[in-house]
Amino acid sequence: MSLWIDSLLAVLAVFLAVRCLLAPTLPQCVFLFFAFGLTLALAWARLGAVDVAIAEAAIAAGFLGVLLIDALRDFSRSRSTGEGGDRPSRVSQGLVGAGVLVFLVVAIEAVWRVPNGGGLTALAADNLPQSGVDHPVTAVLLNYRSYDTWLEVGVVLMALLALFATGGREYFCRPVVRAVDPLLRQVILLFTPVLFLVGAFLLYLGKTEPGGAFQAAVLWGAGGILLHLGGWPVFASMAPWLRHLLLTAGFGFFLLLGFLFMAGGGALFEYPLAQAGLLILVVETLAALSIAAALTAIFAYFNGMSAESAEPFTPASS
């Protein structure tokens, strides 16, 4: 029975991926991509990866989905993605098809006959008492492999700077100040504190159960995005030093702490066991705050790129 459910889910994921890429219009493509992401999240829940499922649903399907929909305002002008010169010629399509088919056969043989390396489950479990947290995924993210996580917090900040680079200067967009629906504002006012509360809860939960900084960050970021959509200028009205502090706190504090303990003779990101639990919670909180801030700023930038923005942003040069 369960094998059937899994097979169904796997086939559905493949089907949605194909349909998404063959969709005749871009909005359809986006919504099928949503469905693909949610199917993957279900698959991950089935595979016992609850953290990943939350992260996928929240970041990859949720946040990126919002950006994709916002981008549709620019791209949906040409409604159809179909025949009008979109597809390459038949010959090159055939070549690509043949190439991908060969690739597929080799890939399937490879994943089918992959030897069982055994993974690191036992090792991760054995060292859990030394990590300062009780949830293995959090232990990997914030202790065993905290270097990766640190760089990743940085990548979100770099993505924001990269976004600024497309316009040639740093720019925190104001909300589109057309009359925001009063009902929407009320609902947002109601939802934002709830989101922040649930985010904090998930963050705290990360010590023992699925949850943690990234999941919390997306909820907080969602709060920021809602406020932006409701007409509250979250970043644009903030003092520059404060918003830079918000954006860099996670990445910076992580590093600062690492340097501090390194000065004491340890390695970078090596925490003494007695304080590890607390330090990890502080690092996670600041990281979540910074990621949330960056996600909000990324969305605000996207929203401000739109031609219908009240304050249309024109690039510095060109």
Partner: peptide, 13 residues
């Protein structure tokens, strides 16, 4: 195995 889970979360972001 928590290591791939952590890697995938990092990878997704």
């Amino acid at each position: 195995d928590p290591v791939p889970h952590a890697m995938v979360i990092t990878g997704i972001v």
